[in-house]
Design a protein around this nucleic acid. Structure first.
Lengths: 215, 215
DNA sequence: ACAAATATGAACCATTCGGTCAATCTATTA
DNA sequence: TAATAGATTGACCGAATGGTTCATATTTGT
């Protein structure tokens, strides 16, 4: 049975390599040869574990998604109130592991491929569904149904826009500037309050601690 | 000198064909052969007018940009007050000529190529600079400097996010929903007022008239 | 009318792509 | 130790890519 283990290992290894290639070279720049080189093995061997390039890239994006999910779960686990849950989502999307041009590159490449690669479409749908459910839950307990839905959607679009700018990195969009923008989005519907400020500060602190602990 | 005219004509013709191909097939799906087919001429002929594929695609995006610019100029020309100028920008980005999945596809492809194609980077920089200057001018006369800058940036990111979603078209993001989101963004800093509602209604009407007239 | 300039397209080139295959190598097991 | 199942690889394939060449057709100025 010592041989089955290596199969799981290789699959994870090559998915990670494909993700690195996706970050560095973009969607069309990521060839099987490049992924194989990244993993230090032959192209044929990569195809031995993934029957097609599409399957490989889908695995790569599931891998990346799982990475972000781990971060989200950790932060949301520490959130005690609805407001803290909202800020947990904000800080998750601004965490140093996610909010990097390389990661954003991979994500934009994913978006660009959505119309042509069915697997990408499915992954993207999952990501959006999770984002929405994470946001609309806490918001519903803070706002009228209609406003909760609107603010949830608006937060999602704003996060999309911020990640896009991060990926383009034409101007150096800092984490602070991005945070200020998302804060302003919340201003649109969420009244300023002492609890809100406290929730923001606490989740920022929790995020800081988790990042430090991770390293 | 009747010969130089055909050169300009062909260049515009092939740029438009390249743009159509970009919308339909994405960045890597757009080959010289495909563009040539789209234009109904030979591949070599296309390359006769554009020395490289990169030059062709750059021209295609300048063409698309000019298309949107024309729309923006028309709307902004009808705006009489700062508030109307803000809503002119909003309606420009939601106009039926721009706010279509095909157009958004091309734009996402452009974004995905930015890190690798220098020409794309330059075009994207120009687009953002124009958007910012169109927004920050009127906003400065309505808000403190700091808020004007923040709201301008936030409007830009929100528009990015909306276009991205339009391109993915996983959920059918309607023009109305997008307009509601941008309206909510303005709520974050711009006080509700009679003038604001009037400005919104007027630019919406102007946009409607212009679209009808165009056809 | 004619030579120069330009426009055009078919065939072609080298390269890269995703993917296949038969041949090796390796490690477990009988 | 011998057999075997799985891991790994280099060589190779057809298709498609961006880009070039060159012979032919068309238009232009004189």
């Amino acid at each position: 049975m010592g041989r089955r283990d290596i199969s799981k290992l290789r699959r994870a290894e090559y998915a990670a390599a494909a993700y690195r290639a996706l970050m560095r070279y973009g969607n069309d720049g990521t060839s099987l040869a490049r992924v194989a080189e990244e993993a230090g093995v032959s192209k044929a061997n990569v195809l031995h574990y993934f029957k097609s390039k599409e399957a490989l890239l889908a695995a790569a994006l599931r891998y990346a998604n799982a990475e972000l999910l781990r971060e989200a779960v950790l932060l949301l686990g520490e959130a005690r109130t609805p407001l803290e849950r909202v800020y947990a989502v904000v800080e998750t999307n601004l965490s140093p592991t996610s909010f990097r041009p390389e990661v954003a590159h991979a994500w934009i490449a994913l978006c660009a491929g959505v119309p042509y690669v069915p697997a990408y479409q499915r992954i993207q749908t999952v990501i959006y569904a999770r984002m929405r459910s994470n946001l609309i839950g806490p918001l519903r307990s803070l706002l009228p149904e209609e406003d909760a839905a609107l603010l949830s959607d608006l937060m999602t679009t704003a996060i999309d826009g911020i990640w896009l700018r991060c990926g383009l990195s034409l101007d150096g969009l800092t984490r602070q500037a991005a945070r200020a923008q998302l804060e302003a989005v919340l201003d649109a519907r969420l009244p300023d309050s002492e609890e809100r400020r406290a929730a923001k500060i606490r989740m920022l602190e929790v995020a800081r601690i988790l990042v430090k602990a991770r390293r």
